[in-house]
Design a binder for these strands. Structure first.
Lengths: 195, 195
DNA sequence: GTTGATTTTGAGCGATTGCTCAAGTTAAAA
DNA sequence: TTTTAACTTGAGCAATCGCTCAAAATCAAC
């Protein structure tokens, strides 16, 4: 053995993730990244291979973090729907001024990478698909718990949730509509229960 | 007088708009634009001032085009809601494979420009606000026609429409979910009528 | 045909991009 | 203490970026 790695991969990826989430892939320069994660080019490229490699790990980390966040809200809630409700309110209202962006990083990624054969486009699709599977499991639980009737399948509920959530986050990516968020989120969950 | 301008500003802006819509602002190079609109740098910069200036005109043109499209669907429909329904189906289903992106250019713009004081961020907000005003007028009509009850204001209907539409377009920005579009759009308009 | 205001052209500038790699630093093993 | 493999550093490369401007081309007016 010899010299040990000085940086903690987890926290570096988290910092990079925040910057990529805020500025997008193309608008984030490698010098921006160097400053944000406090590493020199050589170290970055030996650890992650390329800017694209670092983005890849960042987006995967983002997906994991969302899941972890949801899990945390679920464990403090009495039902799946209440947990999701609290999560949505947290994301849209409480973190409005401290989050890198109001818009989900997965959605931003899917929107940014236009070429259908590009690696990062595929990545964004895969992460979104993975998240949809996770969400579907949650709605399966909700159905089994009797929180929702089974007029829709769990997958259909998950799709509906994603459309609503994405739409709302997009709408609230602007100033001075904060007081609208609460009632519109309320409306969203009322609709889910009435589907 | 002397030499006349050789390009048609309208069609040039339309071409630029398509490219910006597809690739985003940062990923579109001035050389990409030169090729797309068939103009040399000097002409471009004397006509539009900068890449940002051309994008500015492109986004404004995009907004006008959407409105014109909606107007066209409205004039061929028996009611406001039917017209909007046809428009939504057209955008999400029929133009899926020929549109520069499944995602609305206004939404892409709003997502791409992170710095809250940047000109193009302000522009995206202004265009979105302008479009919301337009949509609100349409829903006012719909209410006056008795197509919708007035349990919500026209503005609230417009907001709901935008959230749904944006959410759906984001969801369908991926391959192999085409057969889902029709029923989900149906569901969207059923919900609007039942609000 | 000549003039002259106007537009088009494209070589190329300075800045920035993603990234490389030789040299320096570090610390476990001998 | 010496060795040596692993890690960090940062000057700087080749490519590309947004953009400029002097020269060439154009065409209405005379």
């Amino acid at each position: 053995m010899a010299n040990k790695i000085k940086f903690e991969r987890e926290s570096v990826v988290r910092l990079a993730s925040q910057l990529f989430w805020q500025k997008g892939f193309h608008a984030t320069s490698t010098r921006d990244l160097q400053e944000a994660i406090n590493m020199r080019p050589g170290s970055i490229y030996s650890a992650f291979g390329s800017k694209e490699g670092l983005y890849n790990e960042s987006l995967k980390d983002y997906t994991l973090q969302i899941k972890a966040q949801i899990e945390s809200f679920l464990s403090n809630a009495d039902s799946v729907l209440e947990g999701l409700h609290a999560f949505v309110e947290h994301v849209i209202i409480e973190t409005k001024d401290c989050s890198p962006s109001a818009i989900c990083m997965l959605v931003k990624a899917n929107s940014e990478f236009a070429e259908k054969d590009a690696n990062l486009y595929e990545l964004s699709l895969n992460q979104a698909a993975e998240f949809e599977v996770y969400l579907t499991q949650l709605f399966e639980q909700a159905i089994n718990n009797g929180e929702l009737n089974s007029s829709l399948t769990a997958l259909e509920y998950a799709r509906f949730f994603q459309v609503q959530f994405t739409g709302l986050r997009g709408y609230f990516n602007r100033p001075d509509v904060t007081q609208l968020a609460q009632p519109m989120i309320e409306q969203m969950f009322l609709l889910i229960k009435k589907l």
